[in-house]
Write a protein that binds this DNA or RNA. Structure first.
Length: 258
DNA sequence: TAACATGTTTGTCG
DNA sequence: ACGACAAACATGTT
């Protein structure tokens, strides 16, 4: 699941439920997660999101949780949990991750910045207001196709495969357009598209999670909708492959580059 | 059954 | 230096 909006939602959920509380117990149920002993007794001083990584500040140390493909937080004890956080006065919080690609890294707080610097993680597109010039400056410095460039975490942090298709569609720009060749107005369209996509994805998460429990639906405009009608012009949505990943677009709204 | 999946890292090749 | 590719990680779904 997790792209930026889901991780943002996890961070807010943790803040609301556990910030300021003492970690009474951290139960590790997956032998793959090691080195997490001795954090009990620390207070959760803050929670933040950096790209798709969740950062928990516990005393002088930080826990960096990256959900990768299938990791998520469940606000209760869960039998599938790889990790269960028990904060005083709060319900247990489980880290569930069926595919077990997710990572949990323990660092001294002072080393967090360096960690992300070493990873070459790019700047945040949210919640700050980012205009077309900003998008052009960061994403437009490569000749990679726009959609592929949007996914590159060293250019801009947090966008995933869903966002890539959705932002291109909202911007009305063909995903194969070399990022370097977008015009200024197109970057403004990308800025608006990104903002709208991120805010609507974030807003949709709560209700979507409820639906997903019962085999619910996706609320995206083009992602996963191959053959379906474009919400704007009803032209059939097309699926193409870029860098080994699916890209969805409306060939009518998003004209191919010259 | 085989293909596919909302992510990242690492290495190769041109 | 840059970019295209492929593999690897481990499991569930279509």
């Amino acid at each position: 699941m997790p792209e930026l909006p889901e991780v943002e939602w996890m961070a807010h959920g943790l803040q609301r439920r556990a910030e300021g509380r003492v970690l009474d117990d951290l139960e590790v149920l997956d032998a793959r997660l090691t080195g997490l002993d001795g954090l009990e007794g620390q207070t959760l001083q803050g929670v933040e999101r950096r790209g798709k990584t969740l950062v928990l500040h516990l005393g002088k140390e930080a826990l960096l949780v990256h959900p990768r493909m299938t990791g998520r937080l469940v606000w209760s004890e869960d039998p599938r949990a790889r990790l269960v956080f028990r904060f005083g006065g709060a319900e247990p919080i489980s880290f569930v991750d069926p595919r077990r690609f997710g990572t949990v890294t323990r660092l001294q707080t002072r080393k967090v910045r360096g960690f992300f610097r070493d990873k070459k993680l790019g700047p945040e597109p949210w919640p700050e207001e980012r205009n077309g010039a900003w998008w052009g400056r960061h994403v437009g410095k490569t000749r990679s196709p726009l959609k592929v460039a949007l996914l590159r975490q060293e250019l801009v942090a947090g966008l995933g495969n869903i966002a890539g298709s959705e932002i291109c569609w909202r911007a009305g720009v063909h995903p194969a357009t070399p990022a370097k060749e977008l015009t200024r107005p197109q970057w403004e369209d990308v800025a608006r598209g990104a903002r709208n996509h991120l805010s609507s994805a974030l807003a949709g998460i709560g209700s979507e999670l409820l639906l997903v429990e019962e085999g619910g639906t996706n609320t995206f405009h083009v992602y996963g909708r191959e053959g379906g009608p474009c919400p704007v012009c009803a032209f059939p949505i097309e699926r193409v492959e870029q860098a080994k990943r699916g890209t969805f677009l409306c060939p009518s709204c998003q004209r191919a580059p010259a």
